[in-house]
Design a binder for these strands. Sequence first.
DNA 1: CTGGGTGGTTGCATTAGCTGCAATGCTCAT
DNA 2: ATGAGCATTGCAGCTAATGCAACCACCCAG
Lengths: 253, 253
Amino acid sequence: MSQTVDRALSILPLLAEGPADLGQVADRLGVHKSTALRLLRTLHEHGMVYRQSDQRYRLGARLIALAQEAMENLDIREIAHPHLVRLNEQCGHTVHLAVYEEDEVLYIDKVESRYPVRMYSRIGKPVAITVAAVAKLLLADLPEHERRALSDKLDYPMYTSRSTPNQEAFLKELAKVREQGWATDLGGHEESINCVAAPIRGADGRVVAAMSVSAPNVVVTADELLTLLPLVRRTADDISGEYSGRTSAKNPV
Amino acid sequence: MSQTVDRALSILPLLAEGPADLGQVADRLGVHKSTALRLLRTLHEHGMVYRQSDQRYRLGARLIALAQEAMENLDIREIAHPHLVRLNEQCGHTVHLAVYEEDEVLYIDKVESRYPVRMYSRIGKPVAITVAAVAKLLLADLPEHERRALSDKLDYPMYTSRSTPNQEAFLKELAKVREQGWATDLGGHEESINCVAAPIRGADGRVVAAMSVSAPNVVVTADELLTLLPLVRRTADDISGEYSGRTSAKNPV
DNA sequence: CTGGGTGGTTGCATTAGCTGCAATGCTCAT
DNA sequence: ATGAGCATTGCAGCTAATGCAACCACCCAG
């Protein structure tokens, strides 16, 4: 809608790939260097980009701080956190909380496993949307047309041999997940890692977030992990209850 | 420099305070509603803001994901992390890593205490710059004129009775910190929390980051915490060595 | 069910301000 | 010294952002 802003914002993902100098930014943007310079300067004034000693630009500290505040504003996170911690204390494995927003699923909270072998993931990181148990739960709850539109757009990368291979399989899996009210990811993303996940619902029954417990094969087998399902679902339901019970909720997600 | 971009970016911190509707955004920006609408739409297209069900806007998922990538690009963080974990395993307390950038100091990594009583802090959150031990180390290393300029601009909030009260005391403290090569915060931010911190230096000797160990009084006294100083300094030096040894470093901070 | 209020959205004429060019300055390597 | 490479600045032209006003959709009160 606004060309200037559009261009300026396009710089950010570009810099997220790594530092770049003025010329590179101008090229990738398809504008004159002087234009890129002015955009970068404006971004700089707002702390969104930083100019390192070699003159190259990279993403700035204010961006990180803003994202931090953004997450603190998500009240589902505040409510869920103590429950996630408690669950972690009970089972010892990594616990994740994720939300869906505009074609992306991302982790917004995480409690680390107590076992030495830990899986890689980070708060704020977009989730492998076609295979992650939490993603399936969140997408399964979308209105039919949105789900179809999204599944059309997606790639179906074969992270492992058990990854969801294509749209058809994906939609089928989502139907199953919606039906049963929980989801798993058995080695679909990382060969040796399994997850079980359960949905967190708002007062209207819509899924507002999803939580999962993940553990590598070397710690527990998939079957053993599945025995935690009732506990995970109970925790999710507790969070749902507390979330929808709050009449003063200021930021419905 | 660019008015349009400037306005658009000003929306972000505004939304960080909490969701707002079109009218509020337009007012705070001092522009017509239609202008605000177009800016918000552009931000929306880039996923920087999200429109929740009640039509109000809040910060979006892409912002969080970008910030995530920004942090992953900081290679000091990658190098330091395992050292921080090891230190945490040795002492059990909360370990922080922080960097300075454009008048702000922020935590870029954290390993949680193993004790039940934990301090509040979050990765990405700006640090209390006048009192935090890591902040003192980072500022103490700035060139004289920058340090003075910054110390002029700062507020000196009295978080507790032991907070740094004013510029004079602050500069004096920075001189001492620079001299001794380490820093403490003894209840200057939170009454009952103490920290010891040490600098991480690049190949040129400049301080590129700082790390600290923090613990509440109820767990260890300040004196006990100080006995960890040699260990903290050694860890920081190890990280310094590894960081400056890397000839292939692509992102000097 | 109706009228008015609230808040979001759209089309358009005006002109602010963004753009690209070309010239200049700076740094560094040869 | 010299020139190549990159950042920066001033400026004229015109694109594209702006504010206005009209319009729409929704909600509540009468």
